[in-house]
Design a binder for these strands. Structure first.
Lengths: 130, 130
DNA sequence: CCTTGCCTTGACGCTGACGACAAGGTTTAG
DNA sequence: CTAAACCTTGTCGTCAGCGTCAAGGCAAGG
């Protein structure tokens, strides 16, 4: 299959596929006229890449998973390097969740105080004094 | 106070202060020789900006808070526009927390399956068979 | 006069994953 | 013959908040 078909089947663009290739994630054959030719395996690889990128991975994080798939495994997750990345990413996500939770708390506090301030300085009609 | 002093007192760089000015967030006076001259109020403004950026706001989000401070309020939070931004940002954070939680869940699942797969295909010494 | 240490504007670099366009070759259909 | 619809490489643009020179002016001390 050519690049256009793969792009459509993988739900991405030809530009993206060439980008992945330039970064060493995909290795298509070339036909006589220089066109990139992909097989079904590459489709699975591209879908793996996309799935991981959607979850917040970078291209470098994705490499072990691609290698794992290419090594013949049914899933890109099962190789040691992939597991390492999964652990690291999970830790990163946990850390970010913590920070974001703290931020949420702070925003909530700020908002609460701001509202309280408004009630103080410009009381609503039905509040206390007429 | 000149730009270097403000930068140090605010814990940032002169480049950053000029950047804020270029984006209309800070308006220093100019001395005869063309140097930027800031007063104490600008220090508070810059600190407000920094605090909000640290929490994940963009420069555009910060504008209402700066205007609020400049309007004479003790806090940049208490003006209506600031409250709107606070509400919006809180909602954004909540949404992102949800997504990130889902991602965490997925990563956890992938990791669990990968580990289980390893136990299957290459059992530990003390597992089952000798 | 010279150095040191401020300050000025201007302009390019960076990160990441592409989008958009240019200028051209190939193949197929009419 | 030509248009349509593929494909190729190459290059620049995008978003945000700055970092990092470059080239030069101004002030003060020795």
């Amino acid at each position: 299959m050519l690049i256009g078909e793969l792009a459509e089947r993988a739900g991405t663009s030809t530009r993206t596929l060439r980008y992945y290739e330039a970064h060493g994630l995909v290795h298509p054959q070339r036909s006589a006229n220089g066109y990139r030719v992909y097989d079904e395996a590459e489709l699975r690889v591209v879908r793996e890449i996309r799935a991981l990128l959607d979850v917040g991975f970078g291209l470098d994080d994705v490499r072990p998973f691609v290698a794992c798939l290419r090594a013949g495994n049914a899933s890109g997750d099962v190789c040691p390097d992939s597991v390492l990345v999964l652990r690291r990413k999970l830790a990163e996500v946990d850390e970010y969740l913590d920070r974001l939770g703290a931020v949420r708390q702070q925003l909530h506090t700020q908002l609460t105080h701001a509202i309280a301030h408004r009630e103080e300085t410009c009381p609503r009609r039905r509040a206390s004094a007429p």
